[in-house]
């Protein structure tokens, strides 16, 4: 005899059953909405096609490239603006402004200039991440314990040592949080670049299946994106726990 059924299983099964019922006999039956079985069929076809893995790989490539470039730019930049009060105040308004501008609004222009290419996707990711990450890093550098800094100054430690032993360690946890959020965001923007801008990858898969009216495939691909999203957030959290064990998440 197995123990009681876990609630997670119950609600997932219930949700799937509801979907199936609604689309086969229920109120949505007359519409052309794919049922669970149709979606599952499309999912199997997707997962067994080489095309799918090529697209997945393209999405990941774009996300990783954009992420790496953005971090490479934003972390040093963030440290610099965090160290100088003048630089911080100078960039504050500009960075805040670009931070809250949703990247989706610049897509039309970016498509014009770069076309529906991987470079376009990478540019979009960098644009999305770089401002928020710079601010985040700068906040961390500025958050260094004032008492610690004063103590170091009293002991006549050089500015470099103050940066090395007080400013950067204080920025560490901030950077870690920023990196985690950026990794998830990079993946999302990578998909959006495909879906809206026609850049290669899984986003484009949805765009194509939607345009050709292949609804089960649209549903299946979106489903896969959800699974990938969960997987990525788990992996990022897990890596972070391993990498910086002192930091509570």
């Amino acid at each position: 005899m197995l123990g009681p059924v876990p609630p997670a299983v119950v609600s997932v099964v219930a949700a799937l059953a509801l979907w199936q019922l609604a689309t086969s006999v229920g109120p949505l039956a007359n519409l052309s909405i794919p049922s669970v079985t149709e979606t599952a069929g499309a999912l199997v076809t997707e997962l067994t096609s080489a095309q799918f893995y090529i697209r997945l790989w393209e999405t990941i490539q774009m996300a990783v490239a954009g992420f790496v470039i953005a971090m490479g730019l934003a972390i040093p930049l963030g440290v610099l603006i965090g160290l100088s009060r003048f630089a911080w105040r100078s960039t504050k308004f500009t960075f805040d402004f670009f931070k809250v501008i949703p990247p989706i609004v610049i897509i039309p222009i970016v498509i014009l200039v770069l076309g529906p290419t991987m470079q376009m996707g990478i540019f979009l990711i960098v644009f999305t991440l770089v401002f928020a990450m710079s601010i985040q890093t700068g906040l961390g550098v500025r958050d260094a314990d004032a008492v610690l800094l004063e103590t170091m100054r009293c002991y006549g430690m050089s500015t470099w040592k103050q940066i090395r032993y007080a400013r950067l360690p204080s920025a560490g946890p901030y950077i870690a949080v920023g990196v985690r959020l950026s990794a998830s965001a990079a993946l999302v923007v990578s998909i959006v670049a495909g879906l809206i801008g026609g850049a290669p990858g899984l986003g484009k898969s949805i765009l194509l299946s939607q345009a050709s009216g292949d609804d089960p495939r649209t549903f299946a691909t979106v489903f896969v994106l959800g699974v990938i999203g969960i997987a990525v957030s788990r992996v990022v959290i897990w890596t972070q726990r391993k990498a910086i064990f002192w930091m509570p998440t």
Binding site: V188, L195, L207, I228, G229
Partner: peptide, 11 residues
């Protein structure tokens, strides 16, 4: 919530 918001639009 793990599905990118924009990707739900086609659904």
């Amino acid at each position: 919530r793990s599905i990118p918001a924009v990707a739900t639009v086609p659904i």
